[in-house]
Design a protein around this nucleic acid. Sequence first.
DNA 1: TATATAGTGTTTTTT
DNA 2: ACACTATATA
Length: 770
Amino acid sequence: MEAQEILSQLNEEQRKAVEASEGPVLILAGAGSGKTRALVHRIAYLIDVLGVSPGRILAITFTNKAADEMRSRVDQMIGFGSGEIWVSTFHSLCVRILRRYAELLGYTRYFSIYDSDDQLSVMKSLFKQKQIDTRYMKEKGILARISSAKDELISPEKFSRIHTDFYGAKVADLYRSYQDRLSENNAMDFDDLICNTVRLFETHPDVLGVYQERFRYLMVDEYQDTNTAQFRLVSLLAGKYRNLCVVGDDDQSIYKFRGANIRNILSFEEIFPDAVVVKLERNYRSTGTILDAANEVIHHNRGRKDKRLWTKNPEGSKLRFRTFSNGFEEAEYICGEIASAVRSSSRCYRDCAVLYRTNAQSRLFEEKMIMANLPYRIVGGINFYSRKEIKDILAYLKTVDNGSDNLQVQRIINVPKRGIGGSTIQKIADFADEGALTFLEAAGRAADIPGISAAAAKKVEHFTDLIGVLRAKAEVGSISELLRKLLELTGYVEELEAEGTEEAQARIENINELISKTVQYEEEREHPTLSGFLEEVALIADIDTVSEDDDRVLLMTLHSAKGLEFPLVFMAGMEEGLFPSSMAINSDDPMEEIEEERRLCYVGITRAKEQLTLTCARERMTRGERRRSEVSRFIREIPRELMELEGEREAKAGRKLELSGWGVNAGMRQALDALPPEKPAPQAALYGGQLSARAGEPSSPSSKAGETGTVDYAEGDTVRHVKFGSGTVLELKKSGKDYLVTVDFPSWGVKKMIASMARLAKVGQGDGSW
DNA sequence: TATATAGTGTTTTTT
DNA sequence: ACACTATATA
């Protein structure tokens, strides 16, 4: 592609960003300003115009999803060689480097990657070993301290030098022991991946040199969210040729809690005085109104780089703000709005996103989405890979791959139950410590361990034999074959089948899903390895698996929404104490933390392309108690004239206001009243969403409410619901064109639902005697 | 050793 | 509200 052709597709500022190919470049890219476009064109320009070999380019993104998108867009532009470009996240980049040079740091190439559950297990066992009273310190608290130390590249030794007080010394000691334990297990946690790569480069200049030569051109996206360790890594890599282009927006810095250092972006020009600075301030995403609101809110922050987004997009409709008496009604309203948007206009479910501050809020929405039969997907929260059954199976695979990983071996030695108890496990662990063996090696010699009965030793031997067989299988077979063998020999699935519960069935489906993931991995990789698969599993974020061609409403936290956009956005829970969180309000430095919350609010607002709805609940159940709260200060920071408040639209249309704000849910009733005849809704989730909420499957409506204004069941009948199973209809009440059905589900309690949305199937006639 | 039950304690955000 | 932990008991 010609230079002219590449540049002609860009605005003046974007063009500057593309043409400044050499030396340090800082691109301050406001929300929706086409920064990915600029980056993609920059890469195309480097390759096609300047003749840079694709393999010399490294682009670091925040998520795998962003990396995939960037790669495919470059592919579309230049049509070749994009596979050679390194586009990855910090973590996957580091793993790739570390696998090659792990030996230099005292690990093997099969090192495990520990997630937060694994970290917690290690810390718990250290607490036990050191007999630490959890009233004085908490495992998670210590892990947080260690994590922030690593973000700042502070080693255990340095930590103990800095913190000489009693508590600090205690943390330092735990930090040291924690690192030792991880080394023994040939394991690294997420933070280690970055730190160890920095350590590798700093202690092995020759290795650093290899990568400096290799990556002549570096680009870092979401630069405002890099921490000190990541900054150091980037500085080292760019140290020789200095072709470093960073893209970010200080207003979207929302990961301070994870060590993000906003100074990295604010002082880029001081560190690189010759930096070319480009500001992208034209927004291509949102309506004028949405942008005005965003600008006003963020303007309340101090100490930011001066900028103001503008757009040529139409003004669009006003923001909507609604309050409800509780979280249920809030969720009902949002579901109703989404249902009516999909039915009455040409919206798809995937045009809509519900954003909230905390994962806990997703529950309410999930329930209402199921009842309303809306296809949805919850991003984040309870991760697929953190489910018990998945963690168990993965622990087997990790044991096969890395026998030094004592944590995993101990997890599965008695799963499924083999009659090996805690005391036997402890004796093996002690024996391992004494003889400097791994736990698995010690288990292999169970018969020699004093205190272990012959019967117990026999059981342990069965386990170690099993691992041996699986190891042999791993040598010759594929990952999916290994997995099937594993399931066959352990009888894991059989045990679940024997349980016969719905829950066990869901677990089996999850395991099947895991099998397909291994198959999928093997198909898409040229050289699939067990380590590679396990690493992918560890580093894949939930958001990475969100697909564009999947027609569902997306539910996620504001943090997860960064980098995404939707025509219709709902921001729920706009309440003081929730957003901004009470943590921020009551912190030592409320000013600083509330500014971070405000940036989060800014991120949320700027996700919306056409319509933004903000909602709040006056009362909410949190941790088992009812709490009332005031409307969020962020609402008050949005100019009144940009918002349409409760009842205003109805007033204009000459409607009655009697329902506004109170009542069951005025919004939903309105939406329902305005609905055209129902169009068939896709099948809703079966087992709590994530995996099984499938859209687009042919629906088999068994009740035909709405269209005909009738339902084929009556009070007393038994009906079936997709999630709640069967229940008895207690009450059937006409409400407008629809019916309000009250059903008693034995295991879920009494639920009220809208007939046209709940799609209840009649399964039995009532005998009239209930 | 395995299971049932009472008691305990919950940082909001995540690679 | 909920999950996890320690304890008692079979």
